[in-house]
Amino acid sequence: MNEKTINRRIFNNKLYKIFVSSFSFLSIIPLFLIIYFVLIRGIKYINLKFIFSMPKPMGELGGGIFNAIVGSFIIVGVAALIAIPIGIMVGIFLSEYKEKKFTEIVKIFVDTLQGIPSIVIGIIAYLWIVKPLKQFSALSGSIALSFIMLPLVIKSTEEVLNLVPVDIKEAAYALGAPYHRIVLKILLPSGSVGILTGTLIGISRILGETAPLLFTAFGNQFLNLNLLKPMSTIPYLIYVYATSPYKDWHNQAFAASTILIIIVLSINLLGRFIEKKWKT
């Protein structure tokens, strides 16, 4: 190989590196811009009063978003309670019974479910739950959100269980352990960190969902703890306030967005932290 070709190769290598790193840099800019603009417009309205007081009636200045924060936690919490056990069980099935035809079918459905627009899931929840009950309800919102979270839990469970070495499983079989105890005592503990991280990512994903809540949980001016009644959530409140004609509500929408971003970011960082800390 002569010197010219070598120099050209070195040059190409450098060029390639520059391309790859500059696009990586570009990809983080949008997130920074989003956080920057939301923070700059929202953070000055955030104080304890904003977090812990109820909204004022339309037209009055001030008020807080306590009902929406509580509502978000309840609706997302119930959605997680539905999605986590089902998701883990389906994940176990997918990783344990790879040869079955049915497994392939389930996989295709899970992938498809992940791709379904969230507003469509909202419509389905509306048709299935809201219409028969003749009532917007927090529960219908939770169920809609659980459909969005479910594929994320299934995928992360399946992936971490696939990483559990076969010899660990065989060791458990060789001790005469029944299958259900092997899953419970060996597979799930070995995959617990990954499952937890996947769950946290799923939770932070549905925390920000608005579309499926528009015609399910609907929204509520008042603090409501009844799952069968309409309930407010942070993203829904942002949607309503941001599309209103009032300047004060616009500011509150930015403040609420800031709070939502802070919650979502902390959950994501917590997931990262857990993964780093406990992964063996």
Partner: peptide, 11 residues
Amino acid sequence: MVFQKPNPFPT
């Protein structure tokens, strides 16, 4: 049974 590769349960 004892296997080729030592496989204590990691958890």
